[in-house]
Simulated scan of single mutants.
Amino acid sequence: MGNVLVLNASYEPLSVVSVRRAIVLLLKEKAELVEAAEAYLRAEQQAFRVPLVIRLVCYVRIPMHLSLPLSRRTVISRDHYTCQYCGCQFGRSDLTLDHVVPRSRGGATAWENVVAACRGCNQRKGNRTPDEAGYALLSVPRRPRYIALTLLNEYSPGHHSSWQKYLY
């Protein structure tokens, strides 16, 4: 049926839930409707607009030091499905992970040393640093500070256009 963006009471993105879960939160008055689609969900005695974005009534505190695991999916999501060398956007299956400082030269597999790269750029860079290969990184790789944004980016290929103003 679709996904619904859940915002904190301060309008920060928290997560993505199913339409069914969003309707339950709305019925229990734990959330309020921010944006809805034109379509309706009909019950025997009621009709509900299909929610696209809901906001929690009570503020949920987000732990600042919650660690996000380093994986292919999270690195590609952090880099917004973009090759960090040529700047082209690709699908998840067309991107690879590249160590900025190669592992053979002591480069660690850490957030600060791994970036998303297309297959062509990764092969041309080879076992060299970006400076040696004549590449410049589009952005300095860092550990994501806000987990929800990284997780929400995983939904970016199919999210509704109304989410855009809340994500960035």
Score class of each variant (00 low, 15 high):
A47T: 06
V24H: 13
V19F: 01
V57F: 08
L151Y: 10
Q89Y: 06
H160D: 11
L68A: 04
L151D: 04
L33W: 02
P157W: 13
A110F: 10
L33C: 04
H159Y: 15
E112G: 07
E44L: 14
V75R: 10
R143V: 11
L95A: 02
P157S: 11
D131I: 12
R119L: 14
F90M: 10
C118L: 01
L70Y: 11
V16R: 08
P157A: 09
S15D: 12
R105V: 07
V19D: 00
L152K: 01
E44W: 14
R73V: 12
L95G: 00
Q164V: 12
M64T: 15
P157K: 11
G134F: 09
A136H: 15
I54R: 03
C118D: 00
T74V: 06
E12R: 12
H80T: 05
G120F: 11
S93T: 14
D98L: 07
R49G: 03
Y40K: 14
W163P: 02
V16A: 15
W111D: 05
V114Y: 04
G107K: 08
T82Q: 13
S18I: 03
S139F: 04
T129E: 05
G91A: 13
P63T: 06
W111P: 08
P141F: 05
S104L: 13
V17A: 08
L5R: 01
Y146C: 09
E132W: 08
T129A: 05
P144R: 04
A36D: 06
L41E: 08
S77Q: 08
A22I: 04
Y155D: 07
T129S: 12
V6C: 09
V100Q: 04
D98K: 07
A39S: 15
R55C: 08
K165A: 07
V19G: 01
V34M: 02
C58D: 15
S139G: 12
V114C: 05
R103S: 15
V53I: 07
D94F: 10
T129L: 12
I54L: 03
G158I: 13
G134S: 10
V50C: 01
M1S: 13
P102E: 11
Q164H: 14
L95Q: 04
K125M: 05
R119E: 13
Y146F: 14
P102I: 02
N113I: 11
E12W: 06
C88R: 14
C118W: 00
F90T: 03
P63S: 09
I54A: 03
G120V: 13
V34S: 02
V4D: 00
V53Q: 00
L33S: 07
P157C: 10
P102Y: 10
A110C: 15
C83A: 05
